[in-house]
Simulated assay, not measured.
Amino acid sequence: MRLTVNGSILLTELPLLERPAAVRAAGFDAIELWWPFASSTPDQADVDALVQALADAGVQLTGLNFNAGDMPGGDRGLVSWPERESDFLANLDVVTQIGERTGCRAFNALYGNRQPDADPVAQDSLGARNLAAAAAAVARIDGIVLVEPVSGMDAYPLKTAADTVAVIDRVASEHGATNLGLLLDVYHLAVNGDDVDAAIAAYRYRVAHVQIADAPGRDQPGTGDLPIERWLGDLASGGYAGWVGLEYKPAMPASQTDPFAWVPRERRTAH
Results as ranks from 00 to 15, higher is better:
residue 27 G to N: 11
residue 68 A to N: 05
residue 90 A to P: 09
residue 267 R to M: 12
residue 213 A to V: 03
residue 144 I to P: 05
residue 239 G to M: 04
residue 42 P to F: 06
residue 139 A to E: 14
residue 255 S to R: 15
residue 132 A to P: 07
residue 160 T to W: 13
residue 234 D to H: 12
residue 217 G to R: 02
residue 124 D to S: 07
residue 181 G to H: 01
residue 24 R to L: 08
residue 161 A to C: 07
residue 11 L to D: 11
residue 169 D to S: 11
residue 103 G to W: 07
residue 87 D to I: 13
residue 239 G to F: 12
residue 149 P to V: 03
residue 196 V to S: 09
residue 242 G to K: 00
residue 86 S to C: 11
residue 118 A to G: 04
residue 77 G to F: 10
residue 188 H to S: 15
residue 116 P to H: 07
residue 256 Q to M: 13
residue 74 G to M: 13
residue 190 A to Q: 13
residue 63 G to W: 01
residue 158 L to P: 02
residue 156 Y to C: 08
residue 110 L to Q: 12
residue 188 H to Q: 15
residue 139 A to Y: 05
residue 118 A to H: 02
residue 69 G to D: 01
residue 221 P to H: 03
residue 162 A to M: 08
residue 169 D to E: 15
residue 270 A to S: 15
residue 15 P to S: 06
residue 190 A to E: 08
residue 107 F to I: 00
residue 218 R to W: 12
residue 168 I to L: 14
residue 259 P to G: 13
residue 207 V to N: 02
residue 143 G to F: 05
residue 111 Y to E: 03
residue 169 D to M: 08
residue 72 P to A: 07
residue 140 R to A: 15
residue 207 V to A: 03
residue 59 V to T: 00
residue 237 S to I: 13
residue 210 V to L: 00
residue 116 P to K: 02
residue 23 V to C: 13
residue 188 H to W: 11
residue 232 L to K: 05
residue 141 I to C: 07
residue 41 T to P: 04
residue 152 G to F: 04
residue 246 L to N: 03
residue 151 S to Q: 11
residue 82 P to A: 04
residue 89 L to R: 04
residue 221 P to L: 05
residue 251 A to H: 15
residue 135 A to R: 00
residue 50 L to S: 01
residue 229 E to R: 10
residue 115 Q to T: 04
residue 47 V to S: 06
residue 197 D to T: 14
residue 12 T to S: 06
residue 163 D to M: 08
residue 106 A to G: 06
residue 121 V to T: 13
residue 141 I to Q: 14
residue 171 V to M: 01
residue 137 A to M: 01
residue 45 A to M: 06
residue 27 G to T: 11
residue 207 V to C: 04
residue 25 A to R: 11
residue 5 V to Q: 05
residue 216 P to S: 01
residue 68 A to V: 11
residue 201 A to C: 09
residue 43 D to P: 10
residue 231 W to G: 10
residue 168 I to V: 14
residue 223 T to P: 04
residue 173 S to G: 13
residue 10 L to N: 08
residue 36 P to D: 03
residue 64 L to I: 00
residue 264 P to T: 10
residue 234 D to G: 07
residue 248 Y to H: 06
residue 64 L to G: 00
